[in-house]
């Protein structure tokens, strides 16, 4: 048992260092494109770490997390646009181009939206839960498409990347470091939650909700809390994603995006601390390498996913580090 724990820790450290070293090297060699690729990995991984709280720890297969990813993106886009045009948002509140302020807004908005969505969805389970979360996300998607004020179908451009104190976010490497730092923070939060009393109850709810209720802990309360926290983290990643692309559009809210986040987690290892990181690395590299060869690269992604589901339920992390240990 002890060995499995350290092997997982070694795997995680390797992945973390790799994700840091690659863009540093690329930047030194004058290859900013690869820095952007690494940033994409970090941001998608953060979004998936958020989902991993609900899906991995809680067993809640949310097929609607694109809603939170997109809302985070729109928080960045809308606040930046209002600041750029010097138009107050509403009630005289000004926009902002400060990333920390945008992240805070993204978290609050996503938390407030996730609360009712979770409260309704969590009355159901299994395939109904999947469908209801999907339905809520699609409602938000169509709302974004049909609301012309913020670009509707065309989306919203962010002309200048938002700012972070003492960092030149317009340059690829500093922006990467901001995203990377936030990913590490997200991983720390995930680990703390997983190991805490809350995490124990959440994982017990996944394994056997009757057992949890029989000791006096209401599974619903625990799951709803997890769903809200999960949405907040994915929302922050959405804000970063918009800044990365200088652009936010309804596609960030679409069910494809929800599916992509689930795929990242399954590939990497659901419930595992670095599962989303491994999954995002593999996904983005496949997208880049195979995508350069064939437009049908997702066919090969499908094959790999099939292989993982059939032969390696623990995902990449499970393959390398063995089974999950619960202490």
């Amino acid at each position: 048992m002890r060995r499995a724990v350290t092997r997982e820790a070694a795997t995680n450290t390797t992945l973390a260092l790799l994700l840091l070293a690659a863009p540093l090297a690329a930047s030194a060699m004058g290859e900013p494109f690869y820095v952007t690729l690494a940033t994409r990995i970090a941001v998608l991984a953060l979004a998936a770490v958020g989902l991993n709280i609900a899906l991995g720890l809680g067993g809640l297969v949310s097929f609607g997390h694109a809603a939170f990813f997109g809302l985070g993106g729109y928080a960045a886009g809308i606040l930046a646009t209002h600041a750029f045009n010097a138009e107050p948002l509403f009630l005289g509140i000004a926009g902002t181009t400060s990333m920390p302020a945008i992240w805070l807004v993204a978290m609050v908005v996503c938390g407030l939206v996730a609360l009712p969505i979770g409260a309704v969805s969590l009355r159901t389970s299994g395939v109904y839960f999947i469908m209801i979360t999907l339905a809520f996300a699609q409602m938000i998607y169509y709302f974004a498409i049909s609301w012309p004020a913020y670009g509707g179908e065309d989306g919203l451009s962010i002309y200048l990347r938002n700012s972070f104190p003492w960092v030149n976010t317009a340059a690829p490497l500093p922006f990467f470091l901001v995203c990377y730092g936030l990913l590490l923070l997200g991983l720390l939060v995930f680990r703390a939650l997983r190991d805490s009393r809350f995490g124990a109850a959440l994982q017990a709810a996944r394994q056997n909700e009757v057992r949890l209720a029989a000791v006096g802990i209401a599974p619903f309360d625990i799951r709803l809390t997890a769903f809200v926290i999960s949405a907040m983290m994915t929302g922050v990643a959405g804000a970063l994603f918009a800044d990365l692309n200088h652009f936010v559009s309804p596609s960030m809210l679409s069910w494809h995006m929800s599916g992509e986040l689930i795929v990242l987690i399954i590939l990497g290892g659901k419930g595992r601390l670095f599962g989303p990181v491994a999954g995002a690395m593999l996904y983005v590299l496949l997208e880049h390498v195979l995508g350069g060869i064939t437009e049908r690269w997702q066919f090969f992604l499908g094959l790999i996913l099939l292989g993982v589901v059939l032969f390696a339920r623990g995902g990449l992390i499970g393959l390398v580090a063995g089974r999950q240990s619960h202490g």
């Binding site: 939650l193 009393r197 809350f198 995490g199 109850a201 000791v215």
Partner: peptide
Amino acid sequence: ARQGSSLRFLRPV
């Protein structure tokens, strides 16, 4: 459960 709320997020069990 006996000790009270499970909404405690920091200390490793």
